[in-house]
Design a protein around this nucleic acid. Structure first.
Length: 268
DNA sequence: CTCGCCACCTGGGGGC
DNA sequence: TGCCCCCAGGTGGCGA
């Protein structure tokens, strides 16, 4: 499920429900996630959750003595539930917080639960992350200069978290559609005008998805993600269906072993 | 440094 | 029903 909007919506749901609460215990049912859950995580009882921040698709839970670093991988989700809620299959990790708990559910186990006592930005997994797409740092001139040396397709450039974080497979296709750019176009061939359109499209796509997800926040502790991102996608997963703008059949292609969807008429 | 590809893991859906 | 193959929202790490 998680691209940046899903992670940000998760963060917003979580933060008010766990910030300021004292950690009463930790349950690790399955330590074999993307990386083994470190032992230090089991000894967090007594610390207080100070804040929940996000960097890229990583969630950073400030515990005072250090940070819990959480990642949802491909299939992970986090929910706040009443203490004592029975665990189901794939419920790998609980952070106990008195009358409630924060639970990680992740069937594919590509997610992660890590710990760092140092500044989280310095952690090896975070240190080389690219720029935040919703920040001012991403602007047309910046994207233009960043892309100059890259002959790879713009779709793949967008999905490289070492350059821009948070744009995953769905929103890469969606942003390129909104910008009217062919996903196969070499990154270095984007004009400044292309970059202007693309930056606008990325920010709009991600912001709208966050807003759409926000509508399910009310129920966060109940069902975690009710209505969810029932976004009407412009092109994603719509192969063969009529483009919502020009009615030309949407096409699918594979780039870097991932599906890309685009409209051959709207995206030149 | 860039690029292309593999790996990790489980589950759901379609075809036979 | 069962089996087999394909597909899935991420991303670190490898060798070229």
């Amino acid at each position: 499920m998680p691209e940046l909007p899903e992670v940000e919506v998760t963060r917003r749901g979580l933060a008010p429900r766990i910030t300021g609460r004292v950690i009463s215990g930790v349950t690790v049912r399955e330590p074999r996630l993307r990386w083994p859950v470190p032992r230090a995580v089991r000894g967090l009882a007594g610390h207080t959750v100070k804040s929940v921040r996000r960097r890229g698709k990583y969630l950073l839970v400030d515990c005072g003595a250090g940070h819990l670093i959480l990642h949802l991988g491909m299939s992970g989700s986090l929910r706040v539930l009443p203490a004592g809620t029975p665990a189901k299959k794939h419920d790998h990790f609980d952070l106990l917080l008195g009358d409630r708990l924060l639970r990680l559910h992740d069937p594919r186990r590509f997610g992660a639960v890590l710990w760092t006592a140092a500044a989280p930005e310095a952690h090896p997994l975070l240190a080389h992350l690219g720029i935040e797409p919703l920040s001012r740092a991403l602007d047309p001139a910046r994207l233009h200069s960043m892309t100059r040396a890259h002959r790879a397709a713009i779709k793949q450039f967008l999905m490289d978290a070492q350059r821009i974080v948070g744009v995953g497979n769905i929103y890469a296709s969606e942003s390129l559609f909104r910008a009217g750019i062919d996903p196969r176009k070499a990154a270095k061939k984007l004009s400044l005008m292309d970059c202007k359109k693309l930056v606008g499209a990325i920010k709009r796509t991600l912001s709208l998805a966050i807003r759409a997800g926000g509508s399910s926040l009310r129920d966060f502790s109940v069902n975690g993600r009710s209505g969810y991102f029932q976004n009407r996608y412009w092109v994603y997963a719509r192969e063969g269906k009529a483009c919502r703008r020009c009615r030309t059949p949407v096409r699918r292609l594979v780039q870097g072993q991932r599906s890309t969807f685009y409209c051959p008429r709207c995206q030149q």
